[in-house]
């Protein structure tokens, strides 16, 4: 049992390191297509983390939506716009170093705060298992208002996207 927990722990940290490395690849690689692939890998890694934390529905949604839909569209867009796929882009500028130092300081502070905060870990929270059924019930009962508001947000965004994307001169 001990060994199993240890293995799970190592696995989770390895997964997180992988996600971080791929995320770094997204902002550091010079080829846009490679960046997109890295993003897909990072998103799959996050889905793996969700699985690890027993949110299987969330993991499925993550893969379906982000990897299946969003990433496909991004890669399509890169492949279709010819001058983007082959070109190498420079991903840093003169402000990179100060920005990096600032971010490093920020991350240190936040990491310190996170480490010293006594997070309330309860047995109930550890054993929680969100099922699809539970999520469905929650969305239709307690969370019905935010759920409906999101539907309005989506329809407004859709209409706006059509207006922005449509050819000019409707008259």
């Amino acid at each position: 049992m001990e060994i199993l927990t240890l293995a799970a722990k190592i696995g989770a940290y390895a997964l997180m390191t992988g996600v971080l490395l791929f995320a770094l690849g997204v902002v550091a690689l010079r080829n846009l297509f490679h960046s997109a692939l890295c993003l897909a890998a990072a998103l799959i890694g996050i889905a793996g983390l969700y699985l690890f934390f027993r949110a299987d529905f969330l993991a499925a949604v993550q893969i379906l939506l982000y990897v299946g839909a969003v990433m496909t569209v991004i890669i399509f867009a890169i492949m279709l716009t010819e001058h983007l796929s082959g070109k190498t882009t420079i991903q840093h500028n003169r402000q990179s170093l100060p920005a990096f130092l600032g971010i490093a300081a920020l991350v240190t502070v936040i990491a310190k705060v996170i480490l010293q905060t006594p997070w309330p870990v309860t047995q109930k929270a550890l054993g929680a298992h969100t099922s699809v059924e539970g999520i469905g019930t929650a969305l239709m009962t307690v969370y019905v208002f935010p759920f409906e508001v999101i539907s309005v947000v989506l329809i407004a965004a859709l209409i706006g996207a059509v207006i922005i994307a449509k050819r000019e001169n409707p008259s």
């Binding site: 935010p146 508001v149 309005v152 947000v153 407004a156 706006g160 207006i163």
Partner: peptide, 16 residues
């Protein structure tokens, strides 16, 4: 939840 959702809603429409 509502604070984030509502503020994002206003932002999205503002960008548009």
């Amino acid at each position: 939840l509502m604070i984030f959702l509502a503020v994002e809603f206003v932002s999205l429409l503002s960008y548009l």
